[in-house]
């Protein structure tokens, strides 16, 4: 594999014939190695896949990544190594694929169909040590305030997003698809929801640390 400067990468990938083919092959090989390393060493969720399956997955992702790099060559500003910029694109391709597969059957409506996700009361479940009456009353009071805040402060869309991402840990990308928006817009929506709730609770004299301590038995 040829070592190239940033300018050489750009020139070779924009060239015709064998020069371009060789550069594309080198780039794909490099991205393939990087993606395979990431999938095999860092993704515990893929540990059930064989080496061959991971290699096929990395090959497909590297192929898509090269196409994406070629489509975006004009946007490379030279502010890093060209290969680092290409790795950034490859990582986005790979992780987006993995998220799509993970949340293929995800439905926001199904997730929020259960209604109230807060416990109906502060009564302990069987087998757990009951809190003191004072603490149980305090928890019940704060639970009511949280319930009111979620209903009064947030829009339905903000609640759905916050519940899915913040409580259930669903990928922002998956929720964005369900809500017909994009990651950045959803991130801003979540940021607004968090900020409004935090302000509301602080106005009510409820600090985050106090509430966490109250419910972390």
């Amino acid at each position: 594999m040829t070592d190239r400067s940033n300018d050489e990468w750009l020139a070779d990938l924009r060239a015709d014939g064998d020069m371009q083919a060789e550069a594309i092959n080198d780039l794909k090989h490099r991205l393939d190695r990087g993606i395979y390393y990431y999938l095999s060493r860092e993704r515990s969720d893929l540990s059930g896949l064989s080496e061959t399956e991971l290699q096929h997955m990395a090959d497909d992702m590297a192929q898509d990544s090269v196409l994406r790099v070629l489509e975006n060559l004009d946007s490379f500003r030279g502010d890093s190594q060209f290969t680092t910029w290409a790795i950034r694109i490859a990582v986005r391709v790979a992780i987006s694929d993995l998220r799509r597969a993970r949340y293929r059957d995800f439905s926001l409506d199904d997730l929020t169909a259960d209604g109230d996700f807060l416990p109906a009361s502060a009564n302990p479940v069987a087998g757990t040590k009951p809190p003191s009456p004072e603490r149980a009353a305090e928890q019940a009071d704060v639970l009511d305030k949280i319930r009111e805040a979620l209903a009064d402060v947030l829009t339905e869309r903000q609640f759905q997003a916050l519940y899915a991402v913040g409580v259930k840990g669903v990928s922002i990308d998956a929720v964005a698809v369900e809500l017909g928006t994009n990651r950045n817009a959803l991130y801003k929506l979540l940021h607004d929801a968090r900020r409004k709730l935090r302000q509301h609770f602080e106005d009510e004299g409820l600090s985050m640390n106090y509430m966490l301590r109250l419910f972390q038995e």
């Binding site: 996700f117 807060l118 416990p119 302990p124 479940v125 757990t128 928890q139 639970l143 949280i146 916050l162 991402v165 913040g166 409580v167 259930k168 840990g169 922002i172 990651r183 950045n184 991130y187 801003k188 940021h191 968090r194 900020r195 709730l197 935090r198 609770f201 985050m208 509430m211 966490l212 419910f215 972390q216 038995e217």
Partner: peptide
Amino acid sequence: MYENIVHLIECISLVHQEGAIDCVS
């Protein structure tokens, strides 16, 4: 029992200052 509430509070706690960078940037 309070897992959902704790996740919610932790999520709200993480809000950072206005003007911080977004996903696209």
